[in-house]
Design a protein around this nucleic acid. Structure first.
Lengths: 343, 343
DNA sequence: AACGCAAATGATTGCGCTATCATTTATCTT
DNA sequence: AAGATAAATGATAGCGCAATCATTTGCGTT
């Protein structure tokens, strides 16, 4: 095997490997992409050259020539929210076992930023997109449909998905939480919510409808803020809600567990007994909810599983399985714990 | 402006836009990449064609022709750990304002997987890499250096960085935590740690040295597990530590805040008073530590800022500022709270 | 041993774009 | 107003690879 003297500054190409291995360029390409088409002996000879030179194929040239990018574009609204990073982990774990790469963008909960980011994703000619929710701009949705790229919209169930859809009904979950609280004997039920993204809005609407159905809805029992959600904000909203209800609220549905923890820690400081004086229910069922004292009732959602499912749907589609379900309801489960159960 | 009848199945290229706008392909390219080089009138004319057709440039062709990918490769060990997603957010927030795209991979704390993933990243001819820590395989480090791509290693300070380095001394932080606990009058100090990645190991070594210096080190006061860290595991490790020390431990340095919360919640259930019977100190200073009751002493680290800094260093380098600092110590701060302070 | 067929390998071309250099048009100088 | 310079636009070639088709080699059959 002759090793061409390699200018250290010049990047290695297929040709360099081909020369080193004494074969044609296309044979090297085959060794990399379709090794079964190359005889055992040649394959080893070429592989040796690849390893020796430390050759790494140029993905751009490959993608351009084959019009296959092996890229899956993913758009999520936030990187600091465990809800999305859990889903992401599911996506990465599935994609990692295939040849696909994940190109991730953070839309910061803004449809306009999302549109910009999805342009970026589309310029990579992705094999598929996984995007969050359904509140893309019209332009953005047009771009996606025009590109004819398979899309999965995740996190929530949509009335008119662009293509595939994995999620659950936030509205129904909100409704069910209130039913649970009513069942437990609470009747002056409040809601605190932050960020107020579409999914939080839906939970709130479900909350509202359930109380209206029970004839127990009061406008001043809702306290929200456009600020990002956090434990700190949960404490603040809780105090505001107490003020707004003159301390008469006896249960609070918190739009997520961070808010619920904030409310819980704050009530501890105020010597309000949870659950005897006040019930608290969160959403998402993060780990802390299960272990905090009292343990927090919350709505468990298979986030990781949702990511896995979305990734699997994408892969199935890319493998040509066009008859698989296009919409998957992941459901949810209310985890009833100490914080909503009178002693 | 004549619009060529566009076969809906065929993807749009520069040429299509050029024909539609009645100009040459290169002019369209300029409108996109160097608009200042095109006259105002022509620029508008071309932009109109771009918008009308919904043209999105093919990034692969562009990168191949220009040998500029505008991709920054990022490798982190875990997506489920807020420590890394906070850093990531810093990276994304900076990169989002530039033209760079972030290609993210998850190494699952495995150097072998990391090597594989970094091959993937390198095949995208990234402009730079941001990778975690210094325990890459030798092969992996060779690949990186051979590629001559700027690299920032983040999260910890390294003895021999490959190139740039942003982090802080986990060893020193561990040492300082013990000093704080000793200062507060605790003397039978234990350690619990999970996952035991290099950084946790360093904190533990700092812990050990500080106790040895004070002549107070006992082997059975360390309790670790290779399992991933969690609140649940924190509770378990804490119980094990109590058993191992016959309940004589009076302070626990927890390798991170999840473990500390687990230990705290468990001690609440066991009616152990924190901080009077037992001090607890965490690491990372996540939001819950500040709000839980009693509030948890922890080591605050500028994670988001570390991501921002790493991204800025990359950008500075890519802009040709070669004389900037290659190593940045982000430092840390021990946040002294209720959990380590006798009443 | 001659033939046919399959498997293995190679030569050519083009993916869509931008670098480079060439050409044309506008603007300035004295 | 002629020449010089700058600004705007275009023509050509090639980035590194894989699709396609062509050629060679190996192997079994009778």
């Amino acid at each position: 095997m002759k090793v061409a003297k390699q200018n250290a500054d010049k990047k290695l190409t297929l040709i360099d490997v081909a020369i080193a291995a004494g074969v044609s360029a296309i044979t090297v390409s085959r060794v990399i992409n379709q090794p079964e088409k190359v005889s055992e002996s040649l394959r080893q000879q070429v592989q040796k050259a690849i390893d020796l030179l430390g050759y790494i194929p140029n993905q751009y040239a490959s993608s351009l020539a084959s019009s296959k990018s092996n890229v899956i574009g993913v758009a999520i609204p936030s990187l600091s929210n465990t809800v999305f990073t859990d889903v992401l982990r599911g996506i990465y774990d599935v994609m990692g076992t295939t040849g696909y790469k994940v190109l991730l963008v953070d839309t910061h909960y803004s449809p306009l930023e999302e549109e910009k980011m999805i342009r970026t994703l589309l310029s990579q000619t992705p094999e598929a997109l996984i995007i969050t929710g359904g509140d893309q701009t019209r332009t953005c949705q047009n771009l996606i449909q025009k590109s004819r790229v398979p899309v999965v919209q995740i996190m929530e169930l949509l009335n008119e998905p662009l293509d595939m859809n994995v999620g659950f009904s936030h509205w129904q979950a909100g409704y069910d939480v209130v039913k649970h609280l009513l069942d437990e004997g609470y009747s002056r039920i409040g809601f605190i919510g932050a960020r107020m993204d579409p999914r939080v809005q839906q939970r709130m609407q479900g909350f509202k409808k359930a109380l209206e159905d029970a004839d127990k809805f009061h406008k001043n029992f809702i306290m929200t803020t456009p600020e990002p959600s956090s434990i700190s904000v949960g404490g603040e909203l809780f105090k505001s809600l107490l003020a707004s209800t003159n301390g008469t609220v006896d249960a609070v549905f918190c739009a997520n567990d961070d808010l619920a923890l904030g409310a819980l820690f704050e009530s501890q400081r105020m010597n309000i007994n949870v659950p005897n004086d006040l019930a608290l229910c969160g959403f998402n069922d993060i780990e802390a909810s299960r272990f905090v004292n009292p343990s927090l009732t919350s709505v468990q959602v298979g986030r990781y599983e949702m990511g896995v499912k979305a990734a699997e749907m994408v892969i199935a589609r890319l493998n040509g399985n066009t008859d698989d379900a296009k919409v998957v309801d992941m459901g949810y489960q209310i985890k009833k714990r100490q914080s909503t159960s009178h002693e």
